[in-house]
């Protein structure tokens, strides 16, 4: 996982979803539901959409679960899918509590997070399945988790 110093690439909006954080954290099953919904959109240009949706939902679900476990129950969760020539980018932004500001803001740019960092499992998963993952902090209370997927086969 890296802090976002994201390269300049033209991305277009695909999907934007804004949820009230209180509503979102009231029901864990929403993580699975939202992940499946987004994964189907991510996979729509693939030769085998069902399989790529299954693959991408693994990582998207983990990001959304991390937001579920880490967010403050106030404010909003912003979920965006963006598309470039080669990639579909999933972004999930949420507010973290003051207690967690050091955890997220001083995130090590070079190394994978270690336990008990909340993103430890997500980073390990992304590395295992070869998905690029980024983290971007804004101010001292908001973080965006970003994962890049192939827009279609053979575009890496």
């Amino acid at each position: 996982m890296q802090h976002a110093s994201l390269e300049q690439e033209a991305f277009q909006d695909m999907t934007a979803l804004t949820l009230d954080a209180g509503l979102f954290t009231s029901e864990f099953r929403l993580c699975d539901t939202i992940a499946e919904y987004l994964a189907n959109i991510v996979a729509q240009s693939h030769e085998d959409p069902a399989r790529y949706a299954n693959f991408s939902s693994l990582v998207i679900n983990e990001i959304i679960e991390l937001a579920f476990r880490s967010t403050e129950p106030v404010g909003r969760i912003d979920i965006d899918l963006l598309k470039s020539e080669t990639r579909v980018r999933a972004c999930v932004a949420f507010a973290f509590g003051k207690d967690s500001s050091t955890t997220w803001a001083t995130f090590d740019r070079a190394a994978a997070p270690s336990r008990p960092h909340p993103a430890y499992d997500l980073a390990a998963l992304a590395q295992a399945v070869d998905v690029n993952l980024f983290v971007e902090t804004r101010g001292d209370d908001r973080v965006t988790l970003i994962a890049d997927f192939l827009v279609r086969e053979g575009t890496r």
Binding site: R51, Y52, N54, F55, L58, A124, L125, A128, V129, D130
Partner: peptide
Amino acid sequence: SVITWSAPLFKT
């Protein structure tokens, strides 16, 4: 082989 994430994850 149908589930593409399964082998890479369990191989860790």
